[in-house]
Design a protein around this nucleic acid. Structure first.
Length: 499
DNA sequence: GCGATCAGCT
DNA sequence: CACAGCTGATCGC
């Protein structure tokens, strides 16, 4: 089997071998842009994208010819620097594409989904999948609770809402993104026969793609004076805008996948909310993985941790790509997926400043926001019992154990873990293969060992590292590690192993 | 002074 | 939390 194509996430998704970024939100050397939503668009020296996406970038963001635009045709193989590139329709919005790569040297393949959905939309092409060894996929709605009803049913609800509001003499206002959802609902309104008025941004976007869409209803630019009797389409940010508030008799409805979340209607402060989304729901995400049959899955966006754990239970190697390595923690393992039940209780960590540090590490790995990470680390540094430990906490948090290397490799840790627990070599390998993350493996193995946790400080750990450096034999080092792990909890121990 | 990027907020 | 996008601050030419 050929080695998998390498994927990293320094500040965005990156394929080092091809020197290619995937949907980075900053400008760079060369990148693939999957679709024309603003959080995926940036200026690059060279850009791969579909023809429609290029046109939309020009009309929407005024991109001229600053960088080289390489338009790839859908489905056709294009050779490029030892790679075969192929775009596939992603079904997210019009022009959205997945990127399929083949490394010509050995045939290794990769599929990057970008944003996508499998359901057939009214305003975008049907998604097409292809087998790949490595799958990089979004999992915005990667929880079972996000199972959307059939689109036809949701559309019928939306039309009913519009119809009834009009019959009551009100003005229905549908809120959805100006590129994607707006055209979707426009197409759906084509048969209903209601006159439609749209916000300027939706007007611009729709006019740009109208030739590519099917039958559209009559739609005109929003004019408050003439709005009565029309169905209004506005972007979500305008839901409570002055223009809308002036229409005293309006009723608003939000179109979003988040509608399935409890309290969504209240949060968006709308009269109705409907689960219409341009993203794959949970069953579609599972179906995608089963169809692509990848050897490894990398997850981005949304509930990546939960969905990775889910996929592993289904027998796929799956990891979150974007959240583990923020803050340069250098504990750069694909993040461990800790089941909530295993990590929440305080006594999982034990006592002493090392336990505090480990708990903070786990917490920073858990939260996505950098600010929150900083908050967690700041809280840790403040709560340290002694000032001497501050530099230690900082050093450990950056993944460093000291000025000189420990010469403590993975085989040594493995021996210590096996000797300490009741796990034999074969079982160990099984656990290790299913996890592919040293810290997580350690945690699972340690859970099966008889541990007797005692308080442990950061200084204690620093002393251990010193002893390890001085230790003469491998045996001696194994014993030192064993003894230390014996007196930590499994959770804290797993973070010692990561260090 | 402009464009690009970023933090922060919905 | 955030499907995406705005605003205002800051950076750098």
């Amino acid at each position: 089997m050929s080695p998998l194509i390498e994927v990293t996430h320094p500040r965005g998704i990156y394929l080092p071998e091809a020197d290619l970024w995937l949907d980075p939100h900053f400008g760079g050397k060369r990148a693939f842009i999957s679709h024309a939503h603003s959080d995926h668009v940036a200026r690059h020296e060279m850009t791969f994208c579909s023809e429609v996406t290029r046109d939309l970038m020009k009309t929407r963001y005024g991109y001229k010819s600053e960088g080289e635009m390489r338009v790839l045709p859908m489905r056709e193989v294009v050779e490029w620097e030892g790679w075969e590139l192929r775009l596939l329709p992603a079904g997210h919005i019009i022009g959205s594409a997945m990127l399929h790569l083949t490394r010509k040297a050995d045939g290794a393949t990769l599929l990057y989904t970008g944003d996508y959905k499998l359901r057939q939309g009214l305003s975008s092409e049907r998604c097409e999948l292809l087998h790949a060894d490595t799958l990089i996929m979004e999992c915005t709605f990667g929880l079972p609770q996000f199972t959307f009803p059939p689109t036809a049913q949701v559309v019928a609800q939306v039309l009913k809402f519009a119809q009834e509001t009009l019959e009551d003499g009100g003005i229905p206002v549908l809120l959805g993104y100006s590129l994607g959802k707006a055209q979707e609902i426009l197409c759906a309104l084509a048969e209903a026969g209601h006159p439609v008025m749209v916000h300027k941004s939706i007007w611009d976007m729709t006019r740009a793609v109208a030739p590519l869409l099917g039958k559209l209803p009559d739609y005109r630019l929003f004019d408050a004076a003439l709005a009565a009797g029309h169905v209004l389409l506005f972007p979500p940010s305008n839901g409570r805008s002055i223009a809308i508030k002036k229409l005293k008799v309006c009723r608003t409805a939000m179109l979003t996948g988040w509608a399935l979340q409890p309290g969504a209607r209240f949060r968006y402060q709308v009269d109705e909310i409907f689960p219409l989304s341009d993203h794959a729901d949970y069953p579609e995400l599972i179906e995608t993985v089963e169809e692509v049959k990848p050897r490894r899955v990398w997850l981005v966006h949304g509930s990546t941790r939960e969905f990775a754990a889910d996929l592993r239970l289904r027998g796929f190697e799956a990891w979150t790509l974007e959240k583990a390595d923020q803050l340069e923690l250098t504990l750069q393992s694909a993040s461990p997926v800790v089941r909530p039940a295993l990590e929440k209780s305080a006594d999982d960590w034990g006592e002493g400043s090392f336990a505090q540090w480990a708990a903070a590490c786990a917490q920073t790995a858990e939260v996505a926001s950098r600010l929150k990470k900083v908050e967690v680390l700041a809280g840790l540094l403040k709560s340290l019992p002694s000032e001497d430990e501050l530099p230690l906490a900082a050093r450990f948090s950056s993944g460093s154990t000291g000025d000189t290397p420990l010469n403590t490799g993975w085989s040594l840790l493995k021996r210590a873990l096996i000797e300490l627990s009741a796990v034999n070599e074969v079982e160990y390998r099984t656990i290790s293969r299913s996890q592919a993350d040293t810290g997580r493996t350690a945690f699972l193995v340690l859970q099966r060992a008889a541990l007797s946790p005692t308080p442990c400080s950061l200084s204690n750990v620093a002393a251990l590292f010193d002893q390890l450096r001085k230790a003469g034999s491998q045996m001696e080092r194994v014993t030192l590690i064993k003894t230390r792990l014996q007196h930590l909890t499994a959770a804290a121990g797993s973070w010692l192993v990561r260090l």
